[in-house]
Design a protein around this nucleic acid. Structure first.
Lengths: 218, 218
DNA sequence: AAATAAATTTAGACTTGTCTAAAAAAAGGA
DNA sequence: TCCTTTTTTTAGACAAGTCTAAATTTATTT
Protein backbone atom coordinates (compact mmCIF):
# COMPACT_ATOMS: atom_id res chain seq x y z
CA UNK A 1 0.00 0.00 0.00
CA UNK A 2 0.95 3.62 -0.47
CA UNK A 3 1.15 6.37 2.10
CA UNK A 4 -1.40 9.14 2.25
CA UNK A 5 1.10 11.54 0.80
CA UNK A 6 2.09 9.22 -2.02
CA UNK A 7 -1.55 8.72 -2.93
CA UNK A 8 -2.16 12.46 -3.05
CA UNK A 9 0.81 12.95 -5.34
CA UNK A 10 -0.35 10.19 -7.68
CA UNK A 11 -3.78 11.74 -7.89
CA UNK A 12 -2.35 15.19 -8.52
CA UNK A 13 -0.05 13.93 -11.28
CA UNK A 14 -2.96 12.10 -12.88
CA UNK A 15 -5.03 15.29 -12.97
CA UNK A 16 -2.17 17.42 -14.27
CA UNK A 17 -1.39 14.93 -17.02
CA UNK A 18 -4.72 15.84 -18.62
CA UNK A 19 -3.27 19.31 -19.21
CA UNK A 20 0.47 18.59 -19.51
CA UNK A 21 0.56 15.46 -21.62
CA UNK A 22 4.31 15.75 -22.23
CA UNK A 23 5.06 15.47 -18.53
CA UNK A 24 4.18 17.32 -15.37
CA UNK A 25 6.67 19.93 -14.21
CA UNK A 26 7.91 20.15 -10.66
CA UNK A 27 6.45 23.61 -10.24
CA UNK A 28 3.04 22.65 -11.59
CA UNK A 29 2.94 19.75 -9.18
CA UNK A 30 4.10 21.94 -6.31
CA UNK A 31 1.28 24.37 -6.97
CA UNK A 32 -1.32 21.60 -7.23
CA UNK A 33 -0.10 20.04 -3.98
CA UNK A 34 0.24 23.40 -2.25
CA UNK A 35 3.82 22.64 -1.30
CA UNK A 36 7.33 23.65 -2.29
CA UNK A 37 9.21 22.51 -5.39
CA UNK A 38 11.94 20.96 -3.27
CA UNK A 39 9.40 18.78 -1.48
CA UNK A 40 8.05 17.69 -4.84
CA UNK A 41 11.50 16.69 -6.05
CA UNK A 42 11.97 14.54 -2.94
CA UNK A 43 8.64 12.79 -3.31
CA UNK A 44 8.98 12.31 -7.05
CA UNK A 45 12.29 10.55 -6.47
CA UNK A 46 10.58 8.25 -4.02
CA UNK A 47 7.71 7.51 -6.39
CA UNK A 48 10.24 6.87 -9.12
CA UNK A 49 12.11 4.33 -6.98
CA UNK A 50 8.81 2.59 -6.40
CA UNK A 51 8.22 2.48 -10.17
CA UNK A 52 5.05 4.53 -9.86
CA UNK A 53 6.32 7.34 -12.09
CA UNK A 54 8.79 7.91 -14.88
CA UNK A 55 11.18 10.62 -13.85
CA UNK A 56 14.41 12.06 -15.15
CA UNK A 57 15.98 15.08 -13.54
CA UNK A 58 14.79 18.41 -14.89
CA UNK A 59 12.42 16.60 -17.26
CA UNK A 60 9.14 16.49 -15.41
CA UNK A 61 7.26 13.39 -14.38
CA UNK A 62 4.76 10.95 -15.88
CA UNK A 63 2.77 8.15 -14.33
CA UNK A 64 3.83 4.59 -15.09
CA UNK A 65 1.17 1.93 -15.72
CA UNK A 66 1.44 1.01 -12.04
CA UNK A 67 1.10 4.62 -10.94
CA UNK A 68 -1.81 5.28 -13.26
CA UNK A 69 -3.69 2.24 -11.99
CA UNK A 70 -3.16 3.38 -8.43
CA UNK A 71 -4.31 6.90 -9.26
CA UNK A 72 -7.43 5.63 -10.98
CA UNK A 73 -8.29 3.49 -7.98
CA UNK A 74 -8.04 6.52 -5.71
CA UNK A 75 -10.20 8.58 -8.07
CA UNK A 76 -12.72 5.74 -8.18
CA UNK A 77 -12.95 5.82 -4.42
CA UNK A 78 -13.19 9.59 -4.26
CA UNK A 79 -16.04 9.73 -6.74
CA UNK A 80 -17.98 6.80 -5.29
CA UNK A 81 -17.84 8.39 -1.86
CA UNK A 82 -19.10 11.65 -3.37
CA UNK A 83 -22.09 9.83 -4.79
CA UNK A 84 -22.71 8.21 -1.41
CA UNK A 85 -22.58 11.54 0.40
CA UNK A 86 -25.00 13.21 -2.00
CA UNK A 87 -27.39 10.33 -2.62
CA UNK A 88 -27.55 8.81 0.83
CA UNK A 89 -26.40 11.40 3.35
CA UNK A 90 -28.05 14.59 2.07
CA UNK A 91 -24.84 16.41 1.21
CA UNK A 92 -25.01 19.13 -1.40
CA UNK A 93 -22.56 18.86 -4.31
CA UNK A 94 -20.54 21.75 -2.92
CA UNK A 95 -20.01 20.01 0.43
CA UNK A 96 -18.59 16.68 -0.62
CA UNK A 97 -15.06 17.43 -1.68
CA UNK A 98 -13.21 17.69 1.63
CA UNK A 99 -14.85 14.62 3.12
CA UNK A 100 -14.26 12.57 -0.04
CA UNK A 101 -10.59 13.63 0.09
CA UNK A 102 -10.38 11.82 3.40
CA UNK A 103 -12.52 8.83 2.49
CA UNK A 104 -10.58 8.14 -0.71
CA UNK A 105 -7.64 6.93 1.39
CA UNK A 106 -9.50 4.15 3.18
CA UNK A 107 -7.98 0.83 2.17
CA UNK A 108 -10.43 -2.00 1.64
CA UNK A 109 -11.24 -3.61 -1.63
CA UNK A 110 -14.41 -5.15 -0.27
CA UNK A 111 -15.55 -1.79 1.09
CA UNK A 112 -15.30 0.02 -2.19
CA UNK A 113 -16.77 -2.76 -4.30
CA UNK A 114 -19.70 -3.18 -1.94
CA UNK A 115 -20.19 0.58 -1.87
CA UNK A 116 -20.24 0.58 -5.67
CA UNK A 117 -22.89 -2.14 -5.64
CA UNK A 118 -24.87 -0.39 -2.89
CA UNK A 119 -24.99 2.78 -4.99
CA UNK A 120 -26.09 0.86 -8.10
CA UNK A 121 -22.78 1.09 -9.97
CA UNK A 122 -23.06 4.81 -10.76
CA UNK A 123 -21.26 6.01 -13.88
CA UNK A 124 -20.76 9.63 -12.85
CA UNK A 125 -20.16 11.56 -9.65
CA UNK A 126 -22.25 14.58 -8.57
CA UNK A 127 -20.03 16.92 -10.63
CA UNK A 128 -20.49 14.89 -13.79
CA UNK A 129 -17.07 13.22 -13.69
CA UNK A 130 -16.90 9.58 -14.78
CA UNK A 131 -16.38 6.90 -12.12
CA UNK A 132 -13.87 4.16 -13.02
CA UNK A 133 -15.19 0.62 -12.55
CA UNK A 134 -13.35 -1.96 -10.47
CA UNK A 135 -11.14 -2.78 -13.46
CA UNK A 136 -10.16 0.87 -13.84
CA UNK A 137 -12.18 1.54 -16.98
CA UNK A 138 -14.28 4.64 -17.32
CA UNK A 139 -16.26 6.34 -20.03
CA UNK A 140 -14.53 9.12 -21.91
CA UNK A 141 -17.02 11.93 -22.02
CA UNK A 142 -17.56 14.06 -25.10
CA UNK A 143 -17.93 17.36 -23.39
CA UNK A 144 -17.11 20.90 -24.43
CA UNK A 145 -16.56 24.00 -22.36
CA UNK A 146 -19.57 26.31 -22.63
CA UNK A 147 -17.10 29.05 -23.55
CA UNK A 148 -16.24 27.15 -26.75
CA UNK A 149 -19.81 27.03 -28.08
CA UNK A 150 -20.88 29.49 -30.76
CA UNK A 151 -24.08 31.49 -30.97
CA UNK A 152 -27.00 29.20 -31.69
CA UNK A 153 -25.36 26.10 -30.20
CA UNK A 154 -27.26 24.29 -27.53
CA UNK A 155 -26.66 21.29 -25.33
CA UNK A 156 -27.05 19.95 -21.86
CA UNK A 157 -24.94 20.71 -18.87
CA UNK A 158 -22.88 17.60 -18.04
CA UNK A 159 -20.12 18.67 -15.70
CA UNK A 160 -17.98 21.29 -14.03
CA UNK A 161 -14.29 21.95 -14.43
CA UNK A 162 -13.94 23.89 -11.21
CA UNK A 163 -15.64 22.04 -8.39
CA UNK A 164 -14.94 24.53 -5.64
CA UNK A 165 -17.76 25.20 -3.22
CA UNK A 166 -17.88 28.85 -4.31
CA UNK A 167 -18.45 27.99 -7.97
CA UNK A 168 -20.97 25.27 -7.21
CA UNK A 169 -22.91 27.59 -4.94
CA UNK A 170 -22.97 30.19 -7.69
CA UNK A 171 -24.46 27.60 -10.04
CA UNK A 172 -27.05 26.61 -7.43
CA UNK A 173 -28.04 30.24 -6.95
CA UNK A 174 -28.57 30.62 -10.70
CA UNK A 175 -30.40 27.30 -10.95
CA UNK A 176 -27.76 25.81 -13.21
CA UNK A 177 -27.45 22.09 -12.57
CA UNK A 178 -26.38 18.97 -14.42
CA UNK A 179 -28.89 17.79 -17.02
CA UNK A 180 -30.30 21.22 -17.79
CA UNK A 181 -30.43 22.52 -21.34
CA UNK A 182 -28.50 25.62 -22.29
CA UNK A 183 -28.56 27.58 -25.54
CA UNK A 184 -26.09 30.31 -26.48
CA UNK A 185 -27.98 33.46 -27.50
CA UNK A 186 -25.20 36.06 -27.60
CA UNK A 187 -21.45 36.23 -27.09
CA UNK A 188 -19.77 39.49 -26.12
CA UNK A 189 -16.31 39.81 -27.65
CA UNK A 190 -15.15 42.50 -25.25
CA UNK A 191 -15.38 40.58 -21.95
CA UNK A 192 -16.24 37.14 -23.31
CA UNK A 193 -19.53 37.14 -21.41
CA UNK A 194 -22.52 35.26 -22.83
CA UNK A 195 -26.25 35.52 -22.88
CA UNK A 196 -27.72 32.06 -22.52
CA UNK A 197 -31.15 30.55 -22.46
CA UNK A 198 -31.51 28.27 -19.46
CA UNK A 199 -34.75 26.38 -19.84
CA UNK A 200 -36.69 29.41 -20.98
CA UNK A 201 -34.93 31.98 -18.79
CA UNK A 202 -32.35 34.37 -20.20
CA UNK A 203 -29.17 34.65 -18.15
CA UNK A 204 -25.98 36.65 -18.66
CA UNK A 205 -22.87 34.86 -17.47
CA UNK A 206 -19.23 35.91 -17.27
CA UNK A 207 -16.36 34.08 -18.92
CA UNK A 208 -15.26 32.71 -15.55
CA UNK A 209 -18.49 30.72 -15.56
CA UNK A 210 -18.50 29.61 -19.18
CA UNK A 211 -14.87 28.52 -18.86
CA UNK A 212 -15.79 26.10 -16.08
CA UNK A 213 -19.01 24.51 -17.26
CA UNK A 214 -19.04 21.46 -19.51
CA UNK A 215 -21.76 20.99 -22.11
CA UNK A 216 -22.68 18.02 -24.25
CA UNK A 217 -23.68 19.59 -27.53
CA UNK A 218 -26.99 18.31 -28.86
CA UNK B 1 -8.22 18.25 15.63
CA UNK B 2 -6.05 15.42 16.83
CA UNK B 3 -3.59 13.31 14.90
CA UNK B 4 -4.32 9.72 13.98
CA UNK B 5 -1.88 8.55 16.60
CA UNK B 6 -3.30 10.76 19.31
CA UNK B 7 -6.80 9.50 18.54
CA UNK B 8 -5.68 5.90 18.80
CA UNK B 9 -4.06 6.55 22.16
CA UNK B 10 -7.20 8.25 23.49
CA UNK B 11 -9.31 5.32 22.39
CA UNK B 12 -6.91 2.81 23.94
CA UNK B 13 -6.81 4.69 27.25
CA UNK B 14 -10.60 4.85 27.26
CA UNK B 15 -10.85 1.09 26.81
CA UNK B 16 -8.20 0.33 29.43
CA UNK B 17 -9.85 2.62 31.96
CA UNK B 18 -12.76 0.16 32.11
CA UNK B 19 -10.31 -2.34 33.62
CA UNK B 20 -7.79 -0.06 35.38
CA UNK B 21 -10.02 2.55 36.97
CA UNK B 22 -7.19 3.89 39.15
CA UNK B 23 -5.15 4.87 36.11
CA UNK B 24 -3.69 3.14 33.08
CA UNK B 25 -0.07 2.04 33.39
CA UNK B 26 2.51 2.76 30.74
CA UNK B 27 3.08 -0.93 30.11
CA UNK B 28 -0.61 -1.73 29.78
CA UNK B 29 -0.96 1.05 27.25
CA UNK B 30 2.14 -0.09 25.40
CA UNK B 31 0.70 -3.57 25.07
CA UNK B 32 -2.69 -2.29 23.90
CA UNK B 33 -1.04 -0.01 21.32
CA UNK B 34 1.45 -2.69 20.27
CA UNK B 35 4.32 -0.32 20.84
CA UNK B 36 7.15 0.24 23.34
CA UNK B 37 6.80 1.77 26.79
CA UNK B 38 9.17 4.59 25.85
CA UNK B 39 6.94 5.58 22.95
CA UNK B 40 3.98 5.60 25.29
CA UNK B 41 5.75 7.91 27.72
CA UNK B 42 6.47 10.33 24.88
CA UNK B 43 2.91 10.37 23.63
CA UNK B 44 1.38 10.57 27.08
CA UNK B 45 3.47 13.67 27.76
CA UNK B 46 2.13 15.20 24.59
CA UNK B 47 -1.47 14.35 25.43
CA UNK B 48 -0.91 15.77 28.89
CA UNK B 49 0.34 19.07 27.48
CA UNK B 50 -2.80 19.20 25.38
CA UNK B 51 -4.90 18.65 28.51
CA UNK B 52 -6.37 15.44 27.12
CA UNK B 53 -5.06 13.29 29.97
CA UNK B 54 -4.02 13.61 33.58
CA UNK B 55 -0.49 12.36 33.95
CA UNK B 56 2.15 12.39 36.66
CA UNK B 57 5.41 10.55 36.19
CA UNK B 58 5.33 6.92 37.28
CA UNK B 59 1.66 7.24 38.21
CA UNK B 60 -0.17 6.06 35.13
CA UNK B 61 -2.59 8.09 33.06
CA UNK B 62 -6.29 8.99 33.11
CA UNK B 63 -8.44 10.77 30.55
CA UNK B 64 -9.50 14.34 31.31
CA UNK B 65 -13.05 15.45 30.47
CA UNK B 66 -11.70 16.77 27.18
CA UNK B 67 -9.90 13.51 26.42
CA UNK B 68 -12.88 11.39 27.38
CA UNK B 69 -15.19 13.39 25.12
CA UNK B 70 -12.77 12.98 22.24
CA UNK B 71 -12.45 9.24 22.88
CA UNK B 72 -16.23 8.82 23.00
CA UNK B 73 -16.59 10.65 19.70
CA UNK B 74 -14.08 8.30 18.08
CA UNK B 75 -15.86 5.28 19.51
CA UNK B 76 -19.17 6.65 18.25
CA UNK B 77 -17.73 6.89 14.76
CA UNK B 78 -16.17 3.44 14.92
CA UNK B 79 -19.41 1.78 15.96
CA UNK B 80 -21.63 3.66 13.55
CA UNK B 81 -19.36 2.67 10.68
CA UNK B 82 -19.53 -0.93 11.84
CA UNK B 83 -23.31 -0.82 11.68
CA UNK B 84 -23.09 0.70 8.20
CA UNK B 85 -20.74 -2.01 6.98
CA UNK B 86 -22.91 -4.83 8.30
CA UNK B 87 -26.36 -3.41 7.54
CA UNK B 88 -25.69 -1.76 4.20
CA UNK B 89 -22.56 -3.28 2.69
CA UNK B 90 -22.99 -6.98 3.51
CA UNK B 91 -20.00 -7.26 5.81
CA UNK B 92 -20.00 -10.01 8.40
CA UNK B 93 -19.40 -8.98 12.01
CA UNK B 94 -15.92 -10.50 11.90
CA UNK B 95 -14.90 -8.36 8.91
CA UNK B 96 -15.71 -4.87 10.12
CA UNK B 97 -13.04 -4.06 12.64
CA UNK B 98 -10.07 -3.14 10.45
CA UNK B 99 -12.11 -1.00 8.11
CA UNK B 100 -13.89 0.75 10.99
CA UNK B 101 -10.48 1.46 12.53
CA UNK B 102 -9.72 3.51 9.44
CA UNK B 103 -13.13 5.12 9.05
CA UNK B 104 -13.26 6.25 12.69
CA UNK B 105 -10.59 8.86 11.90
CA UNK B 106 -12.55 10.69 9.21
CA UNK B 107 -13.25 14.21 10.40
CA UNK B 108 -16.69 15.58 9.55
CA UNK B 109 -19.43 16.31 11.99
CA UNK B 110 -22.04 16.39 9.27
CA UNK B 111 -20.87 13.05 7.91
CA UNK B 112 -21.25 11.21 11.17
CA UNK B 113 -24.53 12.79 12.17
CA UNK B 114 -26.05 12.10 8.75
CA UNK B 115 -24.72 8.56 8.87
CA UNK B 116 -26.34 8.14 12.28
CA UNK B 117 -29.64 9.37 10.84
CA UNK B 118 -29.28 7.22 7.71
CA UNK B 119 -28.83 4.14 9.89
CA UNK B 120 -31.87 5.02 12.02
CA UNK B 121 -29.94 6.09 15.13
CA UNK B 122 -28.82 2.59 16.10
CA UNK B 123 -28.19 2.01 19.82
CA UNK B 124 -25.72 -0.87 19.48
CA UNK B 125 -23.05 -2.00 17.05
CA UNK B 126 -22.88 -5.50 15.53
CA UNK B 127 -20.95 -6.80 18.56
CA UNK B 128 -23.56 -5.53 20.99
CA UNK B 129 -21.57 -2.51 22.17
CA UNK B 130 -23.52 0.70 22.83
CA UNK B 131 -23.20 3.59 20.38
CA UNK B 132 -22.83 7.04 21.95
CA UNK B 133 -25.27 9.64 20.60
CA UNK B 134 -24.07 12.99 19.22
CA UNK B 135 -23.96 14.39 22.76
CA UNK B 136 -21.71 11.55 23.90
CA UNK B 137 -24.32 9.70 25.97
CA UNK B 138 -24.74 6.00 25.70
CA UNK B 139 -26.69 3.31 27.51
CA UNK B 140 -24.86 1.44 30.23
CA UNK B 141 -25.61 -2.19 29.59
CA UNK B 142 -26.32 -4.63 32.40
CA UNK B 143 -24.39 -7.54 31.04
CA UNK B 144 -22.53 -10.40 32.70
CA UNK B 145 -19.84 -12.66 31.39
CA UNK B 146 -21.23 -16.08 30.63
CA UNK B 147 -18.41 -17.45 32.78
CA UNK B 148 -19.91 -15.72 35.81
CA UNK B 149 -23.32 -17.38 35.54
CA UNK B 150 -24.15 -20.32 37.81
CA UNK B 151 -25.84 -23.57 36.90
CA UNK B 152 -29.47 -22.98 36.09
CA UNK B 153 -29.02 -19.34 35.10
CA UNK B 154 -30.21 -18.34 31.69
CA UNK B 155 -30.21 -15.20 29.59
CA UNK B 156 -29.72 -13.83 26.16
CA UNK B 157 -26.47 -13.23 24.40
CA UNK B 158 -25.94 -9.45 24.16
CA UNK B 159 -22.31 -8.88 23.30
CA UNK B 160 -18.74 -10.07 22.96
CA UNK B 161 -15.70 -8.98 24.95
CA UNK B 162 -13.19 -10.21 22.36
CA UNK B 163 -14.22 -9.06 18.92
CA UNK B 164 -11.38 -10.65 16.99
CA UNK B 165 -12.30 -12.29 13.69
CA UNK B 166 -11.15 -15.66 15.04
CA UNK B 167 -13.53 -15.55 18.00
CA UNK B 168 -16.45 -14.23 15.99
CA UNK B 169 -15.96 -16.92 13.37
CA UNK B 170 -15.95 -19.52 16.12
CA UNK B 171 -19.28 -18.16 17.35
CA UNK B 172 -20.70 -18.21 13.81
CA UNK B 173 -19.61 -21.80 13.37
CA UNK B 174 -21.40 -22.78 16.56
CA UNK B 175 -24.47 -20.73 15.71
CA UNK B 176 -24.01 -18.44 18.67
CA UNK B 177 -25.21 -14.95 17.81
CA UNK B 178 -26.57 -11.89 19.59
CA UNK B 179 -30.15 -12.28 20.77
CA UNK B 180 -30.00 -16.04 21.27
CA UNK B 181 -30.98 -17.59 24.59
CA UNK B 182 -28.42 -19.54 26.58
CA UNK B 183 -28.91 -21.64 29.73
CA UNK B 184 -26.11 -23.00 31.88
CA UNK B 185 -26.56 -26.76 32.36
CA UNK B 186 -23.20 -27.77 33.88
CA UNK B 187 -19.96 -26.15 34.97
CA UNK B 188 -16.73 -28.13 35.15
CA UNK B 189 -14.51 -26.98 38.00
CA UNK B 190 -11.36 -28.55 36.60
CA UNK B 191 -11.07 -26.65 33.32
CA UNK B 192 -13.90 -24.14 33.80
CA UNK B 193 -15.69 -25.47 30.75
CA UNK B 194 -19.48 -25.33 30.59
CA UNK B 195 -22.32 -27.28 29.12
CA UNK B 196 -24.93 -24.89 27.83
CA UNK B 197 -28.29 -25.11 26.17
CA UNK B 198 -28.36 -22.96 23.06
CA UNK B 199 -31.95 -22.82 21.87
CA UNK B 200 -32.55 -26.53 22.43
CA UNK B 201 -29.09 -27.76 21.48
CA UNK B 202 -26.53 -28.79 24.06
CA UNK B 203 -23.06 -27.39 23.55
CA UNK B 204 -19.85 -27.72 25.55
CA UNK B 205 -17.73 -24.60 25.56
CA UNK B 206 -14.33 -23.85 26.99
CA UNK B 207 -13.58 -21.07 29.45
CA UNK B 208 -11.98 -19.01 26.69
CA UNK B 209 -15.43 -18.75 25.17
CA UNK B 210 -17.45 -18.15 28.32
CA UNK B 211 -14.97 -15.48 29.40
CA UNK B 212 -15.65 -13.50 26.25
CA UNK B 213 -19.40 -13.69 25.80
CA UNK B 214 -21.75 -11.24 27.51
CA UNK B 215 -25.19 -12.36 28.69
CA UNK B 216 -28.16 -10.39 29.93
CA UNK B 217 -29.60 -12.57 32.65
CA UNK B 218 -33.34 -13.09 32.32
C1' DA C 1 26.97 33.30 -27.70
C1' DA C 2 27.01 35.54 -23.35
C1' DA C 3 24.14 37.22 -19.76
C1' DT C 4 20.19 36.95 -17.19
C1' DA C 5 16.08 34.77 -15.54
C1' DA C 6 13.44 30.87 -14.30
C1' DA C 7 13.02 26.22 -12.94
C1' DT C 8 14.84 22.46 -10.55
C1' DT C 9 17.71 20.02 -7.45
C1' DT C 10 20.70 19.50 -3.40
C1' DA C 11 22.08 20.16 1.32
C1' DG C 12 20.92 20.59 5.76
C1' DA C 13 17.41 21.25 9.21
C1' DC C 14 12.88 20.46 11.59
C1' DT C 15 8.57 17.76 13.29
C1' DT C 16 6.06 13.60 14.41
C1' DG C 17 6.14 9.30 16.07
C1' DT C 18 8.78 5.61 16.63
C1' DC C 19 12.89 2.77 18.38
C1' DT C 20 17.05 0.91 21.48
C1' DA C 21 19.86 1.25 25.31
C1' DA C 22 20.77 3.14 29.57
C1' DA C 23 19.35 5.46 33.81
C1' DA C 24 16.13 6.21 37.43
C1' DA C 25 12.25 5.17 40.27
C1' DA C 26 9.07 2.01 42.44
C1' DA C 27 7.89 -2.42 44.19
C1' DG C 28 8.83 -6.82 46.27
C1' DG C 29 11.53 -10.26 48.98
C1' DA C 30 14.78 -11.82 52.47
C1' DT D 1 16.44 -2.40 55.71
C1' DC D 2 19.07 -3.68 51.67
C1' DC D 3 19.07 -6.06 47.45
C1' DT D 4 16.88 -7.48 43.32
C1' DT D 5 13.39 -7.16 39.93
C1' DT D 6 10.10 -4.66 37.44
C1' DT D 7 8.37 -0.51 35.62
C1' DT D 8 9.01 3.83 33.81
C1' DT D 9 11.56 7.56 32.01
C1' DT D 10 15.41 9.75 29.55
C1' DA D 11 18.77 10.25 25.94
C1' DG D 12 19.94 9.80 21.49
C1' DA D 13 18.83 7.94 16.96
C1' DC D 14 15.97 7.13 12.84
C1' DA D 15 12.31 7.48 8.86
C1' DA D 16 8.81 10.20 6.52
C1' DG D 17 7.68 14.33 4.77
C1' DT D 18 8.27 18.90 4.89
C1' DC D 19 10.96 23.45 4.81
C1' DT D 20 14.68 27.31 3.61
C1' DA D 21 18.67 28.61 1.39
C1' DA D 22 22.09 27.71 -1.81
C1' DA D 23 23.71 25.49 -5.98
C1' DT D 24 22.87 23.83 -10.48
C1' DT D 25 20.61 23.24 -14.82
C1' DT D 26 17.66 24.84 -18.43
C1' DA D 27 15.40 28.52 -20.90
C1' DT D 28 15.17 33.16 -22.59
C1' DT D 29 16.80 37.52 -24.06
C1' DT D 30 19.69 40.52 -26.30
Amino acid sequence: MFSLSEENYLKAIFHLEQTYKEGVSTNALAEEMETKASSVTDMVKKLSEKKLVIYKKYQGVKLSKLGRDAAIEIIRKHRLWEVFLVEKLNFNWDEVHDVAEQLEHIHSEKLINELDKFLGFPKRDPHGDPIPDSAGNFIASNKTLLADLVIGDSGICVGVKDSSAAFLQFLDKNHISLGKEIKVLEKEDFDKSMLIDLQGNELRISSLISENLYIKIS
